[in-house]
Design a protein around this nucleic acid. Structure first.
Lengths: 344, 344
DNA sequence: GCAACTTGCTAATCCGATTTAACAACGGAG
DNA sequence: CTCCGTTGTTAAATCGGATTAGCAAGTTGC
């Protein structure tokens, strides 16, 4: 791409030293003695000529490209993806690394092919990411490589995982309700995804529900019911409408995803019930929409930015990676959808 | 990253030929004569050893890294970003290219620094992207380089631009209303962003309004009013609520962004007006939320996937890039928010 | 005064490909 | 029988750095 770059040889010539001296002066290594005078000459020459090292050439010798590959099933489907990537990118940038972003779309062959494309470019490490928490089997090309699993778990695959702390989030949802005084009339919409129509519920749903029920029980409260349905707006609407039609009068709804909450809002609105006056709602994910609904939704944020960042930070730590599961807290975004229980 | 790779020297040795012969056989070049027998031996050896060329090493000689840099102001703020990147990525992948994704966050220094990081890695070209259509001044490091401007315009900068066809989208919004029979009681919410509090309105707002008014006029209709406000849910809600409170009874609302539409829905709902029974709504952007609102929103889709794809396609065409503005159509997503005018 | 270090620097190699220049071997023309 | 062109192949140079080995000149020790 365009005019010849200044090379180290140019710098050396301009400074009147050998390329070797220039190399050592520029890399600032101390295991080879360079006089301050020479060093300064080189540095000045480099600055004057606007020298920038050719990372490609350097990595041929050093093996390190200061480049990380990012492979995901799908970066586009979920609105969170951008945050994951941004977190990863910023952490990488702080250490002069760049990210190759790729997406396999769930296709195994595409995945292998992408991993190859990354390895052909000598990436220092690979982040293998899923857009929702689940169990995965990374492609064989990644075995023995420097890998961090992002938002997924692969038992038997020797690499660290970075996942949201769904269990604690479930507990926090319960605490938020208890603090507001809710002990009865609590329904969970979305459930465990025991029969997973929405695959993202498999892990998240179970852990959220487990944490929720645990703290509710400890707080002397319990769920009136758990409605299993897909984690989408349509099902949220339908199930809550059906619940109300059946004569139930919930005081609080725990929606397992913000999309479900939106459906719940719609059903509640049509039934003339106010949030949080008549029914409190607590949710999970903190999608964009959460802050924009009326009333704004109290929800447990999926920490995508921090997931991305931590994955890169692990990679950039020196030394081998340990196959540990890192759980990142899901902060509670307190907004306006939880209130005191409606008088019964 | 881990065990030694098979090199071309290994392949040559295994096939019993020189590295030169192996190179020509593998690259399939015809300007150097290789016997079919030798060629086959090399190919077999390569396959058997699982040889994969080291792109980094190759590019040191050839200058081409099969890598494209992507620099944007912000990939995260807008939910569309993923689609842009996906489009770019898929187009790149089809031609064995990979994308470095970076984000400068609007900071000029960060931008320069990122461009340097990209150039240091010898990217073949750079996509300079904005997350909403606007005028930009690319950093000086990009002058004279192979660049495509994505979703932005830079007069005087010698590079092609790829932008949504907002003008035609404005016309299509008008046509959708005319076809449904609307000729009066039409209000535009969001306006031209003449005083741009929401910067993304500067170009989009003007062109959408221009196309809208043009076709409305030609169709014998006109706007009852244009309400200038920020392109967000809060303002959409406030302005529509105010409009209704002032005693106006619009038949159709043209919301300049889906976020504004959401606010409009909220205000309409609280006033007991049904969409589209009482008021039709047509919108722009096609964010995720558009298809999930009740009723689903008829809107003109920002063609992010195609923008990303076209940018890469332009880059991968051989020959110099021409400084032309490519306008990508914004398809009409017909859903349920437009109906016949309410009887007046 | 000479060996033994230090200090400061450079020549030569290497990384893994591509590409240029050159060179055998063979066949046909004259 | 020589000359020349063709065919198939390879040695060597190159890309832009990092690294190893080695070499002068100056210091110190005894």
């Amino acid at each position: 791409m365009s005019e010849r770059r200044v090379t180290m040889a140019d710098v050396a010539r301009h400074a009147g030293v050998s390329p070797t001296t220039a190399s050592f002066a520029l890399s600032g290594r101390t295991d080879m003695r360079i006089s301050d005078a020479s060093r300064q000459k080189v540095l000045d020459a480099a600055k004057e000529l606007g020298y920038r090292p050719n990372v490609t050439a350097r990595s041929l010798r050093t093996k390190s490209t200061q480049t990380i590959g990012f492979v995901s099933d799908r970066i586009t489907t979920t609105p969170f993806a951008g945050e994951v990537i941004r977190g990863a990118m910023e952490a990488a940038r702080e250490r002069d690394n760049l990210l190759f972003i790729t997406e396999a779309g769930g296709d195994r062959d595409a995945e292998s092919s992408l991993v190859h494309a990354l390895l052909d470019r000598q990436v220092d490490a690979v982040i293998y990411a899923s857009m929702f928490t689940r169990y995965v089997t990374p492609p064989k090309e990644l075995f023995g490589r420097r890998v961090v699993l992002l938002n997924c778990l692969a038992p038997g695959f020797d690499a660290p995982s970075v996942v949201p702390d769904e269990l604690e989030a479930g507990r926090d949802a319960a605490r938020a309700l208890l603090v507001a005084g809710h002990t009865e009339g609590i329904w969970a919409i979305g459930g465990h995804q025991a029969v997973p129509a929405t695959p993202e519920g498999i892990i998240a749903g179970n852990e959220r529900m487990r944490g929720l029920e645990e703290v509710l029980r400890e707080g002397g409260a319990r769920l009136d019911g758990v409605i299993e349905c897909d984690w989408d707006t349509r099902d949220g609407y339908r199930e809550v409408a059906a619940l109300l039609a059946a004569g139930h009068r919930p005081r609080a709804l725990v929606c397992l995803a913000d999309r479900v909450s939106l459906g719940a809002y719609q059903a509640l609105g049509e039934a003339g019930l106010a949030v949080p006056g008549d029914v409190s709602v607590v949710s999970f994910d903190d999608q964009d929409i959460a802050s924009v609904l009326r009333p704004a939704l109290t929800t447990l944020k999926l920490p995508h930015y921090r997931l991305g960042r931590l994955a890169v930070e692990l990679i950039l730590r020196r030394g081998p990676l340990e196959a540990v599961v890192h759980r990142v807290p899901m902060p509670l975004r307190e907004r306006a959808s939880i209130g005191a229980p409606a008088g019964g």
